[in-house]
């Protein structure tokens, strides 16, 4: 019995460990940081610095010539100026409508498309590719094309409406305070619904076929199968998709800027176009920065949920 080792311990409590020093751990991993360094450096220059500078500027009155050594500290005045301004309410409402409506309809169309395309049929790949083209082309191109489609005199949509008897004269989509925002939202949906589609199609692939079969055997009809089996499996993807769409819509600039510049009479002005106008139109960088800081805060809230939705499962992967 000499070969039985002396260290047999069963379910013994481990020896009290020495808490590893953070600096020692950093030192032990010093080579690992070299891999991340270039990326971090670029991000630091182009992100950390601007974030810091934006926050700083938001407390200053700035000269219009961008000679920032002449700036004057004004405390929270820029923030008050924004919150008290007449346009802030209107712009915020526009932003909310723009973001929520674009996201909602893009997601809905995307979901419908994903479900319709999930079944295998001839030409499915081509169909998916065609539907994705608007997402790939530049928003600048999309804006010009739709601007032409919406043209008040020669636009094809107005002409079609007349042909189909929906209207007796060409419609002035973009120069009307009531129709401008919905018209722009349609462009935005056109541009991005296929993003939702592709995400949800990927999500659909994770729905176990066996579960659907089981539900069918259990007597569930198509709608019940969707609602009780498919949809719960899409929850995670849907969360991420909706969040990404929200962020993208909240941040979109090109479509309203090129198509209307925020007009007419600010009817299509959203936060981002407003910030751009304040900064580069009226040269009030301090106020624009304060606006940006408010936007940061909203984005960080969304970002928190984004990261949370993304990290589900990441840490469980063994490295």
């Amino acid at each position: 019995m000499s070969s039985v080792t002396g260290q047999v311990a069963y379910a013994g409590a481990p020896v009290a460990p020495k808490r590893a020093n953070v600096f020692k751990r950093i030192f032990n991993h010093r080579n690992d940081y070299l891999y991340v360094l270039p990326a971090l450096l670029v991000m630091l220059i182009v992100i950390a610095y601007p974030v810091y500078y934006t926050i700083e500027l938001s407390f200053f009155k700035t000269p219009p010539n961008l000679q920032m050594k002449d700036k004057i500290f004004v405390g929270l005045d820029n923030y008050w100026a924004i919150l008290k301004s007449d346009s802030f309410r209107e712009v915020t409402i526009n932003t909310a409508i723009w973001t929520v409506a674009s996201t909602f309809f893009a997601f809905l169309l995307g979901l419908g498309a994903a479900l319709s395309l999930h079944r295998e049929f001839a030409g499915r790949g081509v169909m998916r590719a065609v539907l994705l083209i608007p997402y790939v082309v530049s928003a600048v191109a999309a804006s010009y094309v739709w601007k032409w489609l919406y043209h008040s005199d020669f636009g094809v949509i107005g002409a079609l409406a007349v042909q189909l008897g929906l209207s007796d004269k060409p419609i002035n989509f973009l120069d009307n305070v009531h129709t401008v925002l919905p018209s722009l939202i349609v462009v935005n949906i056109w541009k991005e619904f296929s993003f939702a589609m592709i995400m949800l199609m990927a999500g659909l692939q994770t729905v176990p076929e066996q579960l659907l079969r089981a539900a069918q055997v259990d007597g569930a009809n198509a709608w019940q199968r969707f609602w009780h089996v498919t949809f719960p499996h899409l929850k995670g993807v849907s969360m991420v998709t909706v969040l990404l769409l929200m962020v993208a819509n909240f941040n979109s600039f090109i479509i309203p800027w090129i198509m209307t510049g925020g007009g007419p009479a600010g009817a299509s002005d959203i936060w981002i176009t407003q910030i751009y106008t304040i900064a580069f139109g009226r040269q009030r960088y301090g106020v624009a920065s304060a606006y940006a800081v408010i936007l940061f805060i909203v984005m960080m809230t969304l970002g928190y949920f984004y990261v949370k939705a993304l990290t589900k499962g990441d840490e469980s992967r063994a490295g």
Binding site: V46, V51, M68, V247, F250, I272, A279, A288, L295, G303
Partner: peptide, 15 residues
């Protein structure tokens, strides 16, 4: 990914 381009314009332009 969360930050819109416009927000960074002023400081980046100065940079």
């Amino acid at each position: 990914n969360m930050f819109p381009a416009v927000v960074f314009l002023v400081p980046l332009f100065l940079l």
